[in-house]
Design a protein around this nucleic acid. Structure first.
Lengths: 347, 347
DNA sequence: ATGAAAGCGCTAACAT
DNA sequence: ATGTTAGCGCTTTCAT
């Protein structure tokens, strides 16, 4: 079934004009008489004419589309970022094409190639946990495709980046745990290679050391796929629970890890915070209806999406090559709830 | 900053061939000598040639892109549907362009027009709560643009549709409440005009009547925007709580309503199920870590996305006009947990 | 087996 | 003020 649409030619024929006249009238060119313009505009409106975006982007060498490369959208944090992206893109007249890597390097490369084959004016990227080789982004960036990284950023490409203050996020959370009386704190981390993991680990470590608690590497458990499979989280957690030093608290490094950890602990009937306290990154609006309510580190996800998109469009629409890039660091927020307080909550 | 890419012309020039020869070689045409083909293929691979999708879709009058129109992606149900859509689309070589209406009719119309201006081969749609006039879909459908509806479907357009067995979903849940000893059951419903609301209301009503509980219209509270704003949910809930008949249980009609209701009840310290029981639609994986764990009606969201996409591609790729359409009805699943059992759970 | 040329819808010189 | 033409990248007749 083919869907035939109205072209500028149809209007020209119907009105006895040249296509160029119609084109000019449609864009409100000065050199067109008021009556012709009115005629064209009204007729176009009447038959509901829409320009063909493929023809447009073929001609103008731009598509007014932005590609988004993320690991997953079924994740509170990322879906909020995407809402932020959309809000700006929409206002500026750009489409948003979302692709998910599902934490697979191969899929990320494929998606990126797909998007980059000129169907997209720029890319908004948060790396997959599997990604170590960044050459697919390097080559595109070198060719001049605008790219802005957010959240899990690529350290070796000089471009705009937007991240949370991951260091301060875990620093604050760890400090809070220490001040609440927890000394042996395990860290449930994502893949060791991604930027957020490193920054969050550093904040955790700093808070420990500042409080004369020695950093114990064996208390840091990595999830190579960011906990995409629950099995990864389970294995990390059971190691924490059975650790010789009997950890008193867990600091989880991402939305998925935090919720996964909570689910597993509940399932195993390990009381929180009675047996072990839990604090973690999450943007879930349900953190306060969990049992127990969950102490969480919130990221300004929506704002992150907005800023990243503004920066990207800035590069796309810049007449001259952009050479000065910056990394925006957004504040995280620690919301203290029952999962990290010594006193057993009343429900 | 402009991003210049490799074209078929570059290959032709480099190899001293005509563009048509290169084009044919690239598609593995029979009339091209094996050596020329090999030459072209290898060179294309070497310089990482990708065809320009705009040129392709201008020529072939198709874009290999599918548009998705939903109210929101930051919603477990819809993000799971989108994952299902993506999984099929990707395999079949289609892009997916997602647009969100945020429950606004105007935004839905705009998004639809945007997508439909031939940048898309077909549309996958779940209506916004505000949508009553469906003419934007009617006109596109009449012009031959393939559309498949899912979840919140348009009753007046004859095309493929994919829905959950909403009637049975609420019927089962209501029956469960009745069998658990709850008689006065309120219904927190979405906008009265959307298909799911009607089907879910009917299931609820049927279960009541079959058990000789008279249907009381004043126990049904509608949220005109599906609870997009928490205020809508709050006002509906406070009416339920203060209802003269003292309702014993609430049946919530969607993911957003269910989680919103739970959050509000917890906030107001209204004990669940002590003071009032709660059962609702949700695909949240956290339903069992809520306090109390939440009895929920789960929809096969991923599968819904898959089926809708298969059906859409079937229409898109069909040589002759598709005239026979069907509505796929998928089974829901009732997961009984603590929020609807008389016995107060032990945590 | 390969090349030349037309055309998809649109815009922008370049006429007139 | 309006028309004519070329060209964006690609496929596909129609020559050769």
């Amino acid at each position: 079934m083919k869907y035939e649409a109205i072209t500028i030619k149809d209007i020209a024929k119907a009105l006895g004009l040249a296509t160029s006249t119609v084109s000019r009238a449609l864009k409100g060119s000065y050199e067109i008489s008021a009556e012709t313009r009115k005629l064209v505009l009204e007729y176009a409106e009447k038959i509901n004419y829409r320009p063909n975006p493929s023809a447009l982007s073929l001609k103008e060498k731009r598509s007014r589309a932005i590609g988004v490369v993320v690991c997953e959208i079924a994740n509170t944090f990322f879906s909020q970022v995407i809402n932020g992206i959309e809000s700006i893109a929409y206002d500026r007249g750009y489409y948003v094409i979302i692709s998910q890597s599902h934490e697979s390097y191969g899929r990320e490369v494929l998606n990126t190639q797909h998007l980059a084959s000129r169907s997209v004016d720029g890319l908004l990227v948060s790396l997959s946990t599997e990604t170590i080789d960044m050459s697919h982004f390097h080559s595109l960036h070198d060719k001049g495709l605008p790219i802005v990284f957010f959240d899990r950023v690529c350290e070796t490409i000089d471009t705009h980046k937007v991240i949370s203050d991951n260091f301060k996020g875990t620093y604050d959370a760890t400090l809070h745990l220490i001040n609440s009386g927890y000394k042996r704190i395990a860290h449930l981390a994502s893949a060791p290679n991604i930027s957020t993991t490193k920054e969050r680990l550093a904040g955790y470590r700093k808070a420990l050391e500042e409080n004369r608690i020695s950093y114990d590497e064996s208390l840091v458990m990595y999830c190579a796929h960011g906990g995409l499979g629950q099995d990864e989280i389970e294995s990390a957690l059971s190691q924490i629970i059975n650790h010789q030093s009997k950890p008193e608290a867990i600091l989880a490094a991402s939305d998925r890890l935090t919720l996964g950890a909570m689910a597993w602990l509940k399932d195993k009937k390990i009381s929180i915070p009675g047996k072990i306290a839990l604090v973690g990154f999450t943007n879930s609006q349900q953190a306060n209806i969990f049992s127990p309510s969950l102490t969480s580190i919130r990221q300004p996800a929506f704002e992150m999406g907005q800023i990243a998109t503004e920066k990207l469009i800035e590069i796309i629409e810049s007449k001259k090559p952009v050479l000065k890039f910056e990394t925006s660091v957004l504040k995280t927020e620690l919301v203290i709830r029952a999962s990290s307080t010594m006193i057993k909550p009343n429900e």
